[in-house]
Nucleic acid binder design. Sequence first.
RNA 1: GCGAAAUUGGUGAAGUGGUUAACACGCCGGAUUGUGGCUCCGGUAUGCAUGGGUUCAAUUCCCAUAUUUCGCC
Length: 376
Amino acid sequence: MKLDYQLKKVEKNTKARLGEFQYLGKTYETPMFMPVGTQATVKTLSPEEIKEMHAGIILANTYHLWLRPGMDLVEKAGGLHKFMNYDGPILTDSGGYQVFSLAKNKKKDITEEGVHFKSHIDGQNLFLTPELSIQIQNKLDSDIAMSFDECPPARADYEYLKASVERTIRWAKRGKEVHKNPNQMLFGIVQGGAHKDLREYSAKETVKLDFDGYSVGGVANDHESKEDMYKAIDYSIPYLPENKLRYLMGIGEPIDILEGVIRGIDIFDCVSPTRLARHGHALTKYGKINLKNAKYKEEFTPICDHCDCYACQNYTKAYVRHLITANETFGARLLSIHNIRFLIRMTEQIREAIKNNTILEYKEEFIKNYYGDKNE
RNA sequence: GCGAAAUUGGUGAAGUGGUUAACACGCCGGAUUGUGGCUCCGGUAUGCAUGGGUUCAAUUCCCAUAUUUCGCC
């Protein structure tokens, strides 16, 4: 059954929104952070652990699941929920981002019909179209499907971005026409780099197609500046309907989640908590720390004081450092648990601040702790 | 006791009579934003067992000493 979003409140001093939706008898609140489970698993974690962290929606990837194990197999298994044993909501990315990063010769490989690219598994030539992406997502039976978009960097030249925005709108329309799963929402994606007019055009035209929700895309490419990201949000949000979910794709860092919320974003996803974990980094109230650093060798204290996660409740920095150094997977698990819980707890605090109309104070306090004297 | 070979950083090691001693691992840092799961990028021996000698110049040649390994008595 389609999840049904309700806007509960807009914070007094900013555009920050408090909202909720029901799913299988449970109520979920936004703003929300969605952990990424590319290949039908949040790397190193079980669904039980994910739920224990109070995660809501998790993200899975159309491209990866299409290549392996294949959409027909997942359908045969009874859909993604049954296949991976997760009874919370699942969002599938369309593959647009992967395809863009895998297309070798971008100008030649991206055509009106779709995108030619090579499989990262065996190098075979593949062709993905907006229709196929939606059909795959229909079969995966996720709760939210994403339109197949082109995801160019904000720094691409204006003429290219303009043509790309127009093509993404045509692709969105084509995808919507073949979308057949009545239990699945379909989101449109706003593109246009950091250009005001392109974002406005993209947002208005996408909203005309009447999607179940909207996302701001094209902000998580390499070397994108934070200023451009914030512009992209600011230029897109005014044209999006109030009563639909707004999703900032691929973000992010704690500060970016906060900035996104203040600008009117409801949901976020990002690989960073789990990728950072695998590389030995932990998010803490006082900034990101690298547990591989020698100074943690004998610190027999939790990763983060006052953290309620399983890792902090039971293990020390010295132990986690040892696991990471020795390349033991349990280290990656503990840090994944911690980092995801850190971002989820942050969204819990953000919701509380929205209720109290204190989001700006929360932001100031957060920056003071997280960045210390370094800047801002 | 005799003979032979060896001795280069934390480790395994390459190498040359002449400016910065290769490479790998480790170690020390950094990176990572719609995930190509062990990735990427830096730094890391002022010194080549010790002491003499030859030479304009020695880690590289010679001698002695020490240590190690192998063989013989």
